[in-house]
Design a binder for these strands. Structure first.
Length: 195
DNA sequence: TACGTGATCACG
DNA sequence: GTGATCACGTAA
């Protein structure tokens, strides 16, 4: 069943980032349903320097200030759409970057979008999984319990001992906050990024 | 390790 | 207006 707003509205973004592991992200784009099991996430809090919202609201990050349970999608390096889950209450601009999925539903559609026959790496990175699922900035601000993009709990059970935490990737500009162990992924999982 | 790529943001 | 920068991916 779909996750409801109480899941997203909680204050502890790292707890939610851990609990998103094993949930299933779906989209319906161009009439095609695609979905994948979340295997890697990164938590961002407005209280630390790695977060886009650390210096207040801008045109790009304004949806992060909405109540949790909406999508934050932005363009990175002029090329890659990045998908985040907004969490915490209104004005508390936390978000969780989804970094990798295990393809589950609509695999042929995803392969077509990635222009490859290989299934192994089509969703192993934050820029790739958005392309595979047809996510772009038109979904920025959309609620995550609708029919364009949503997240389901399908009762995959993740043991906490199978979750690895590490420092987040690509945020060296954040100084000491770049060292926070706020990247979470499933141990020995072949679908995480950079493998 | 290098660089494409274009929106964004902090300056004035 | 302008220029540095960027939560990546790929090739080499």
């Amino acid at each position: 069943m779909r996750l409801t707003s109480d899941f997203y509205l909680r204050k502890n973004v790292t707890t939610i980032a851990r609990q998103l592991l094993g949930k299933v992200l779906f989209t319906k784009a161009n009439g095609q349903i695609t979905g994948g099991l979340i295997v890697e996430t990164e938590a961002y809090s407005y209280k630390e320097k790695g977060c886009h919202a650390h210096n207040g609201m801008t045109k790009r990050n304004e949806v992060m200030f909405e109540p949790g349970g909406v999508a934050y999608v932005y363009l990175c390096y002029g090329v890659h759409e990045m998908f985040n889950v907004v969490t915490n209450g209104k004005g508390k601009a936390d978000a969780i970057l989804v970094r990798a999925l295990e393809p589950v539903v609509g695999i042929d559609t995803m392969k077509d979008r990635m222009k490859t026959e290989a299934q192994r790496r089509i969703t192993s990175g934050p820029g790739k999984l958005t392309k595979a699922l047809g996510i772009d900035r038109s979904l920025n601000g959309k609620k995550l319990n609708g029919n364009e993009i949503w997240i389901e709990d399908q009762n995959y059970r993740i043991r906490s001992t199978n979750i690895v935490s590490a420092k987040r990737i690509g945020i060296d500009y954040a100084g000491e906050d770049a060292l926070l162990p706020w990247r979470f992924f499933l141990k020995n999982n072949i679908w995480v990024s950079k493998l």
